[in-house]
Structure formats: C-alpha cells, structure tokens
Computed example of a mutant assay.
Amino acid sequence: MQRQTLPPRTAPRYASMALFFVAGATYATWGIHIPTLRDRFALSPAWLSVAMFAVALGAIVAMQPLGRQVAKLGSDKVVGISAWCFAAATGLLMLMPNFWLTLVVLIGFGIANAAYDVAMNAQAATVEAGSDKPIMSTLHGLFSVGGMVGASVGGGLISLGVPPWLHFVGMGVLIAIVGVIARPKLIADPTVGAMNQDKHAHSGRLLWVIGFLAFLGLVAEGAMYDWTAIYLRDVAQSAALASFGYATFSGGMAVGRFSGDALRARLGMLKLLMVSGCVGLAGIVLALAWPHPWAALIGFLFMGLGCANLVPIFFVAASKLPGMHAGEAIAAVARLAYVGMLIGPVLIGFVAEHAGLRLAMVLVALSIAWIAIDGSRVLKKALKPAP
C-alpha cells in the first residue's frame, strides 16, 4: 500500500506548532524554577531581579542582529541552529556551580530564546503566506498552552522531588529532539530580491510605528500579568479572588488566540485590530470604573480577549512590509515589544507609588485606546503597496 504523505503546507504547519509549544513549555520551566535559583544561591530580591533581567537583556540586545541573520540564512536554517543553542543553554542552567556563571548562562539563554523566537515567528509568517488560511494566532495560542503544560508538569516534578538540573536537562533534550524533527519539514523563506532603497526606507519608518504599537500592546499585557492580583486585593478589596485575576486574563488570551485566525479570515486584519482594541478598552474601563471584584474579573477577561491577537497581528503586518525580510522585520517589532513587557509593570508600579494603583492602571487604558484608535490606520498604511 502506498504511504500517505502530508500536503506540502501541512507538514510545516505541524512543525511550527511543535516549535511554539516547546518554546512555551521551556519558558514556563524557567519561570517556575526562579524560586529554586533564589534558594540555591540565597539571592536577595535585588539580585534575583538581576538574574531575571539577564534573560531579557540577552534577548533585547541580540534581537536585531539575530533578525539580520534570519534574513541572511533563512528562518528554517536559524530554527535548526537556534534549537541546539536553546537546548544547550536550557540544559546548563541548573548545572552551574556559582551565581556568576549562572548569570552568563542566563544571558545566553535569553539570546538563544530570542533567536528561536524570531526564527519560528518568521517561519510562521512564511507558512501563513503560502496557506489559504491564517495560522499565527493559533501558534501563539499553542505557546500559551505549552506554558500551561510546562508549568503543570514542572510543578508535578517538583512535588515528586525530581532534581531541578535533571528537569532542565530533560527539557533541553526535548528542545533538541523537536528541532531535529521539525527542521526538515520547514520551508525556505521567499527571497526579498533586489531592494529599492526608497521602499526599504519607507518600510523602515513604518516598522518603527508598528513596533511602537507592539510596545503599547505589551505595556498593557505585561501590566495585566503583574498587577491584576494586586488590583483585586487592594482596589477591589477581595483577597479571596485575587489569584483569579491572572487566570481570568490568561483565559481570555487563550480563547482570543485560538479564535483569532478564524476571526482574521472573516473580518480582515484591520477590523480585527480595531475590534480587539475596543474589546480590551471596554474591559479595562469596566474594571477601573467599577472596582467590584466580579466586575474587575469580567473586565480582565475582556482585556485578555482584546490583547490576545495584538502581537500576532503586528508580526504578520511587519512580515508583509515591502523590501524587508520577515525575520528582520519581526525581530525589530519583537525587540520593542519586549521592552514594553519589561517597562509596563515597572511604570505601573512607579505611578501607583505616587498616585495609587487605580490611577496607574489608566496607563493601560491609554495604551489600548491608542491601539484601538490609531492601530488600523497605521496598519492600512503599512500594508498599502509602496509606490
């Protein structure tokens, strides 16, 4: 009997799904073991913050050069290379004998994670471009599912007394295996061709604008992840429901992402962005205007639904800019988005210190309002063929 083979675009789809899922699981593995690192080296809160910042620093500094490498080599090749680097950094993370060597590995972990992230998103844009339906939001949804599975499995391993170093080595082996299996199924990026300098300069300017919108989106998203529990406890006066703030927002994100591709196919990118911004804005306004616990939870759910498809939309828009490789464009947008994710919670904390958390969260409303009002206009301009 003749062996059935997957259609040409189906295999890259499944390969991309596996890459996103493993990326989410790996990041969750690091997240749940942050207290392990603290206890192992008896770190103060300040030094623990340095360790966490090292991962983000590695990613932000390396993001743009990595984007150029993706443009030069192709996302399929960089996925293969970065998977091995990501696997090595993950496996080494809990094997270092002292904090300073661990800090070096954390920076390397951030760089390898950024390379893997940019390459798999560029590959996703290539797969979507050759497909009859969107896929980007679903892939980001699988990243979230990977995070939930990684956190759950990791928690179980901790309760069973499995040594952290063994958990990280096992995770590194899994990354390498998925990379080896997925790499042959990925497809080469379309070549940009001879670049018109005017078109490239035009796209470069639009890229900064898209990146700024992504920055605003991640300011809002980062603030929601870090401050929802405190808002419920201190402003809505409900310690019992405080832990549900994060879960409600994350649930909205998951539902929004897994329905996002179908909505984008039906509404189009511009309408979906406007609707997403309006839904998110309605949610945060509800939570701020009526600080009752259940009203806040409903507001956080709507914020999750609104934020879910922002980054996928911005990545797809960046990948379509004329005269630029998808990997380079996505890297530039991702770099600004990472900065927003870092700055958002800190900025909210600074304003809350002087004016209260409820007023500080108005910054989240302003960020999402800007996207709702101006985002569609910017993307329409970005997606308009250059003269």
Results as ranks from 00 to 15, higher is better:
R3F: 13
R3L: 14
R3M: 15
P7I: 10
P8V: 08
A11F: 12
S16Y: 07
M17C: 14
M17D: 12
F20V: 05
Y27R: 07
A28V: 04
I32E: 00
I34W: 00
I34M: 06
R38H: 09
L43T: 13
P45Y: 15
V50W: 11
V50I: 15
F53I: 11
V55H: 02
L57C: 12
L57G: 08
G58R: 05
A62F: 01
A62G: 06
L66Q: 02
A71E: 03
L73A: 04
S75W: 03
S82F: 15
A83C: 15
F86V: 09
G91Y: 09
G91N: 09
L101T: 08
G110H: 11
I111P: 02
A112S: 12
A115K: 12
D117M: 14
M120V: 06
N121T: 06
N121D: 03
T126M: 03
E128L: 05
P134A: 02
P134Q: 05
P134V: 00
M148W: 10
V149G: 04
V149M: 09
A151S: 15
G154A: 06
L160P: 00
P163Q: 10
P164M: 05
L166D: 02
F168Y: 01
G170W: 01
V173C: 06
I175H: 05
I187A: 09
I187C: 06
T191A: 08
A194K: 11
M195V: 05
D198F: 05
K199W: 15
A201W: 08
G204M: 05
F212N: 04
F212M: 08
L213M: 10
A214C: 06
F215G: 03
V219C: 14
A223Q: 08
M224G: 01
T228R: 02
I230P: 00
Y231I: 01
D234C: 12
D234H: 10
Q237D: 15
Q237I: 14
L241N: 14
Y246I: 09
S250H: 11
M253F: 11
R264E: 05
M269I: 15
L273T: 05
V275E: 07
G280Q: 00
G283L: 10
V285R: 00
L286T: 01
P291M: 05
W294P: 11
A295C: 14
I298Q: 13
F302T: 13
F302W: 14
M303C: 15
P312F: 14
I313K: 04
F314L: 14
A318V: 09
S319A: 15
S319K: 12
P322T: 13
A334W: 00
A337C: 10
V346E: 12
F350Y: 02
F350P: 00
V351W: 03
V351A: 11
R358Q: 13
A365L: 04
S367K: 00
I371C: 00
I373H: 04
V378W: 03
P385L: 05
P387G: 12
